[in-house]
């Protein structure tokens, strides 16, 4: 008998095929923090035919904007989005890495102006995708980030 790991939602956003272990980072990218009023369920290391193991995040009662969802591609370029209405999939798409992101990544370069305290500055990065490898370059100091997971703000 199949067991339901995370129950179906009536309405909201399901993020599927997240690389295993990265669900918490997905929440961070979507700025879903402790104290949120949203109903959020999360499953980690769920068996998957395609991926071996995957994570899933379900956000009840909220249709998250595509622009926000596409930021997930930074850490999980294979993630898929299902927008659910009345338990049915209304729209499904694969995340697309944005060309520019603001306030998602922080620059690893301590001497970068974007890390200066008190300056009214939004860290901004240019995103490049080559053969499913996503890298980012700081708009201010030009530093390249290869391992984006470590620099989600």
């Amino acid at each position: 008998m199949k067991e339901l790991v995370v129950s179906k939602i009536r309405e909201g956003t399901v993020i599927d095929h997240i690389n295993a272990g990265k669900a918490l980072l997905v929440l961070r990218i979507l700025k879903i923090q402790p104290g949120t009023d949203l109903t959020v369920s999360m499953a980690m290391n769920v068996p998957s035919k395609k991926m071996g193991k995957k994570d899933i995040v379900k956000v009840e009662g909220m249709f998250i904007q595509d622009e926000e969802l596409n930021k997930i591609a930074l850490i999980s370029p294979n993630a898929t989005i299902n927008l659910i209405r009345d338990y049915e999939i209304e729209r499904k798409f694969k995340v697309q890495p944005p060309e520019v992101v603001e306030e998602v990544l922080k620059c690893p370069n301590h001497a970068c102006i974007s890390n200066a305290e008190r300056e009214p500055i939004k860290p901004r990065f240019y995103i490049k995708t080559e053969e499913m490898k996503v890298t980012a370059r700081c708009h201010y100091c030009g530093r390249k980030i290869e391992n984006l997971d470590d620099y989600i703000s």
Binding site: N109, A111, C112, I113, S114, A116, E119, I121, C138, H139, Y140, C141, G142, R143
Partner: peptide, 23 residues
């Protein structure tokens, strides 16, 4: 002394900015 300071300065300036070295 900070890298990227000139670019940030340009974003906040109403006149042209010339970078004479940022970190």
């Amino acid at each position: 002394p900070l890298e990227g300071a000139a670019r940030f300065a340009a974003e906040n300036s109403s006149v042209p900015v010339i970078n004479a070295g940022d970190g």
